[in-house]
Nucleic acid binder design. Structure first.
Lengths: 125, 125
DNA sequence: CGCAATTTTGACAATCGTTTTCGTTTTCGT
DNA sequence: ACGAAAACGAAAACGATTGTCAAAATTGCG
């Protein structure tokens, strides 16, 4: 277990929402860390492989990561300007996804839901 | 409206599932078309902008496109084995996303929803 | 402790999908 | 047919991610 990996894990844990690898790297660098971009990617990959973090893709193809904070299933409302994320729940969505699955003969149904918008603060600016 | 765009639209219509731009390009080329990769991308972008086709990202960041069957807003139920996709609608989800947005002071709310599962055929195998 | 084997790291180059640039060609209106 | 505007395609540019490889840190063992 490397110190570097811990560094990345911790940086993710301190973030509320999704962070891109480049973003995390710049952040760590600006805090004085001498970590390399390669290592950030490697750490994120390792953490993702071991299921400690979630990965998803933004519409422009960038990979974003987040630490699994809670163990309850929830989704995110993300500000497309400042990146601030709010965790939201939606039982209705869960039920809908499940229903759609069984209705079409699909088993083992999972789903990803991301809601994007402009938060009040950014809308003002 | 260009002939080239029609070519791409048609190529998509003849495909059952999701196709990548590179894939479509190779395909058209092998059929003797002298179309350029740039044009394929431009056509796909235009079609996507006008809402005639759907775009989503694979896990490795590649964009894949699919002709829309209906013109209403909808989501996809995708088989994680064979890639077969079913278009599904969910008014409840739309309303929920909208509600979450306003509830947290977000404006200009959009959302992405993808449902994954194993289709009946693949479950049997 | 000391030293060799092994693992981790990071600067840099390579890759890959996608976008831009920029002449050239085609299309369209008149 | 003529000129403006749009579409085209080849090649260069781009940005995120991955591979390479030598240096540095860690480990195992005597």
């Amino acid at each position: 277990m490397s110190t570097r990996r811990e560094t990345v894990r911790q940086a993710l844990n301190e973030s509320t929402g999704f962070r891109s690898a480049q973003d995390l790297y710049a952040n760590l660098r600006s805090e004085g860390s001498k970590i390399g971009l390669t290592t950030v990617y490697r750490a994120l990959q390792a953490l993702s492989d071991s299921g400690e973090i979630d990965v998803l893709r933004t519409d422009d193809g960038e990979a974003v990561y987040r630490a699994c904070i809670t163990d309850t299933h929830h989704h995110h409302l993300v500000c497309r300007d400042c990146g601030k994320a709010v965790e939201v729940e939606g039982p209705q969505v869960e039920r809908w996804a499940e229903a759609m699955g069984t209705q079409h003969g699909f088993t083992d149904v999972t789903h990803t839901v991301e809601v994007f918008g402009t938060c009040a603060a950014c809308a003002a600016a």
